[in-house]
Design a protein around this nucleic acid. Structure first.
Length: 328
RNA sequence: GGCGCCAUAGCCAAGCGGUAAGGCAGAGGUCUGCAAAACCUUUAUCCCCGGUCCGAUUCCGGGUGGCGCCU
């Protein structure tokens, strides 16, 4: 293969509970590929039920990467993801396989495929803490004014209430002496080494997605979500893992402040809102080829996805879809 | 059957004479180092009929519905 040739990457994206896992695995089987997860929570060990992590059975022999390798106590960020997943993709390609990116963390997917280059700017917990204190005492408006002095461009884009981003922008400047906006322009200025093909899953009727989510949460509880959450609570979460839906919601229940039924509803609601935000994120990308599982049977959907990928990336389908269903 | 209370958006709920707070859910959106996060925007003419008044969601009468108590 030629040096300058771009690496073909299939990206299966969509909201939670839309069927990404299954589609990615089947596409991997059709194209002789391997799955690279793009999910900010499935990277963690012990978080299996709540993150709907692929089971060994569901993997159907297809190798999966970027899953189940980090302790929940460890933090993780987009920068880490882009670096690690990038290596994964390259490695898969070098072995003559097709990398299939699959996951619902839009920021991770886009950052990787657009080749966003993150400078090694470390985080300064003490500085963050003192900025946080300033924010609490003087309000976001005050911090935003401070930011406007050094980086008016970033300041103009941020709302006073969005303290997290204001703090990060200030932190970046104090650590590097360079405004965040400059870093950002630099980060997105690198051409991507990937030839990507986005397949999106959505539902023509939002209601159907929500019903699937509700059902899946019920199933998670039957599968022992509470026990898993309890175990994790004992081990302790890191900053990243603590944000996962389906774990933190149990705390009020354990403290006797909320019933199990209310807890279940809360998890469902949070998951629904998450799904909505995922859709909002992905919808702005024009190149996504959207497919609707509620409008056509799965085999037809798989067929469509695979022929679209074949045409877009100009790669051959190695197996017939019929073969795949026969084996099951 | 009698007495009392209530009737405001999908839900909860404030207002009680000058043309409807807020929360939740829902919808839309932003997004570059915690993203399953953070943040922004958005949704009513107040159960029906009649009366008083310049003006009623707000007062009066009647109706309907609900809740509670009593016989």
């Amino acid at each position: 293969m030629l040096e300058y040739e771009k690496i073909p990457v299939v990206a299966v994206i969509g909201p939670t509970a839309s069927g990404k896992t299954r589609l990615a695995v089947d596409l991997a089987r059709l194209f002789d590929g391997e799955v690279v997860s793009a999910d900010s929570m499935q990277i963690y060990r012990y978080m299996d039920i709540g993150t709907a992590k692929v089971t060994g059975e569901e993997q159907k022999g297809v190798p999966h990467h970027m899953i189940d390798f980090l302790d929940p106590g460890q933090p993780f960020s987009v920068a880490d993801y882009v670096e690690m997943a990038g290596n994964c993709v390259e490695d898969i390609y070098k072995r003559g396989k097709i990398p299939i990116l699959a996951g619902g963390t839009g920021l991770y997917v886009d950052s990787l495929l657009d080749n966003t280059v993150f400078q090694p700017i470390r985080s300064d917990p003490e500085l963050r803490l003192s900025l946080q204190r300033e924010a609490d005492e003087n309000g976001g408006e005050y911090l935003l004014n401070q930011l406007a002095q050094i980086d008016p461009e970033t300041a103009a884009k941020l709302h006073p209430n969005n303290k997290g981003r204001i703090i990060r922008a200030l932190e970046v400047f104090r650590l590097t002496g360079i405004p965040m906006s400059v870093h950002q322009k630099e980060a997105v200025s690198h051409p991507s080494p990937y030839e990507s093909c986005y397949i999106g899953l959505d539902f023509s009727q939002r209601q159907i997605l929500y019903e699937r989510i509700n059902q899946r949460v019920e199933q998670m509880l039957k599968d022992g979500l509470e026990g898993e959450a309890r175990l994790l609570a004992q081990k302790g979460f890191g900053a990243t893992a603590a944000q996962a839906i389906g774990y933190k919601e149990f705390l009020p229940y354990w403290n006797g402040e909320r019933s199990l039924a209310e807890t279940t509803e809360e998890i469902k609601r949070q998951t629904r809102r998450y799904a909505k935000r995922q859709l909002t994120w992905f919808r702005r990308r024009q190149e996504i080829h959207w497919l609707y599982p509620d409008l056509e049977p799965y085999p037809a959907l798989l067929e469509k996805a695979s022929s679209f990928i074949r045409d877009k990336l100009k790669i051959e389908i190695q197996h017939k879809t019929a073969e795949i269903f026969e084996k099951e």
